[in-house]
Amino acid sequence: MNWLPLWITCGLITFAIRYSFIALEGHYKPPGWFVRWLPFVPIAALTALTVPELLLVAGQFNMGDNPRFWAGLVAIAVAARWRNTLLTIGAGFAALGLLRWLG
C-alpha cells in the first residue's frame, strides 16, 4: 500500500496547481501584464501541446516522411475555412489515411 500516500501527494500537487488562480481570484489584483497575457492562454497552451505532435517523430524533427504533419496541415486549412470541429477531425483522419495508403 506504499503507493497510496504517493498517489495522494501527487493528486494534491496537481489539484493545488489547478485550483491556484481560481482560489486567488478576488483576493488580489493581478498586475497589468498578467491580465494582458491571459487572453492568449488557450491559443498558446493548446498550440504548444499540438505542434510537437505534428512535427516530431520519436522525438526527432521530421516533415518530409511524416504523414501526421501533412494531415495536420490539411486539418488546419479545413478548420480555418469551415470552423467545424467534426469536419476538421474527419478531414485530418481522411488525409492521414490517404497518405498512409499511398505511402
Partner: peptide, 29 residues
C-alpha cells in the same frame, strides 16, 4: 491534436493571436 487544431485555428483572427500560436508552437518543438 486534430481536436485541438479544430478549437485553436478558428480563434486565430488577428496578428497578435497568430504570433502567440507561432511562437508557442516553435518553442514547444
Amino acid at each position: 491534436p486534430l481536436t485541438f487544431i479544430a478549437i485553436v485555428v478558428p480563434m486565430i483572427d488577428n496578428r497578435a493571436r497568430l504570433a502567440a500560436a507561432l511562437v508557442a508552437g516553435a518553442t514547444a518543438v
